[in-house]
Amino acid sequence: MKHEILGNPDYGQLSVELGPGESFISEGGAMAWMSDRMELESRMMGGFIKSIIRKFAGGESAFLVQYSHPTGGSVTFSPATPGTVLHRQLNGDSLILTKGAFLGCTSDINLSVKFGGWKSLFSGEGAFQVVCSGTGDLFFNAYGAVLEKEVNGELTVDTSHVVAWEPTLDYRIGGMGGLKSTLLSGEGLVLNFSGTGKIYLQTRTLGGLAGWLSPYLH
């Protein structure tokens, strides 16, 4: 399988070229264009119940799609929001993705849904996380550009800017300083990451876009 990421960071896309017998798994509905006679098969992620949870709590589609082609062909995928597409090769390690970040993977990657704890329900994002592990290629997407931050110590992050992080990092959900700032700062809850590891931050959020657009609506 060959892959190419095009158009980053303005409007990133993933193009995958499959040989005969090879397959690729993507988020449902992400295909933009593809070779003729491509074979699609829908799959559930980790069983029926988890798929349903993922759909309603994680904001992702319940089904994943497996693509293959008898003689070889190509598929181009687009995330729902414009921004950056990222690639990460997993070699037995894992990566945690937030809501809506998963785009696609090779078939040897394991995906499982993890509940982030009751507190995470109030954080808006990240109540359900997708843990990606195994060996293979993982692709995920972000709204806007992406900054990769190496945390060594502590970092405070607005919840909706988090796309993914390495499981070597610990986090707790907190407010912005005092009660007044937590309630009125417009930041809501933040995530305090600690430890050593990488975190992927997106430079725009859908909530931010909605908030900015609201005064113009009629």
Binding site: T156, H161, M176, L184, G186, E187, G211
Partner: peptide, 17 residues
């Protein structure tokens, strides 16, 4: 900064609203 603009910060930054 305008409210809601903070994306990330060091943990020793204090916020006053």
């Amino acid at each position: 900064a305008e409210a809601g603009a903070m994306a990330w910060m060091s943990s020793n930054i204090k916020t006053t609203t």
